[in-house]
């Protein structure tokens, strides 16, 4: 699944990153617990979270996660955006709940990690 599909399915707004990038995402993981995210070994993973602080971006950076979806229209700080841009992480903001976001992406073929 590519970024433009994710944005379209989630009626989302791209905060930063290139909507036309070629990267294909295979897996999804939804959590507000960054400790849990740091235990994952999967590549090509989209992180879905309701947590909005700089540690979300730092976690994505360390775990080689290139796309983060922020649910329920949570607003991100300029610091988060700068950090995401510096590390080539695409940030997407959707008005959908975490439950709805997960179900839409799962239905469209994004696979669970466990």
């Amino acid at each position: 699944m590519n970024i433009s599909t994710v944005v379209e399915l989630l009626e989302a707004r791209l905060i930063c990153g290139d909507v036309n990038q070629e990267r294909e995402f295979l897996y999804g993981f939804a959590s507000d617990l960054m400790s849990d995210v740091l235990t994952l070994d999967s590549d090509n993973l989209i992180l879905i979270t309701g947590l909005t602080n700089t540690q979300v971006i730092r976690t994505a950076e360390m775990a080689d996660i290139h796309c983060v979806v922020l649910v329920r229209g949570k607003k991100v700080s300029a610091e988060m955006i700068n950090l995401a841009e510096e590390n080539h992480i695409t940030l997407i903001e959707t008005p959908f709940s975490m439950f709805r976001t997960v179900s839409v992406l799962y239905e469209a073929g994004l696979k669970p990690v466990y």
């Binding site: 617990l33 960054m34 400790s35 849990d36 995210v37 235990t39 947590l51 602080n53 540690q55 976690t59």
Partner: peptide, 15 residues
């Protein structure tokens, strides 16, 4: 609140 503190850090460092 920052998304940590679940008692997973040291075991994950070991891993």
């Amino acid at each position: 609140e920052m998304g940590f503190g679940a008692g997973m850090g040291l075991p994950n460092i070991k891993k």
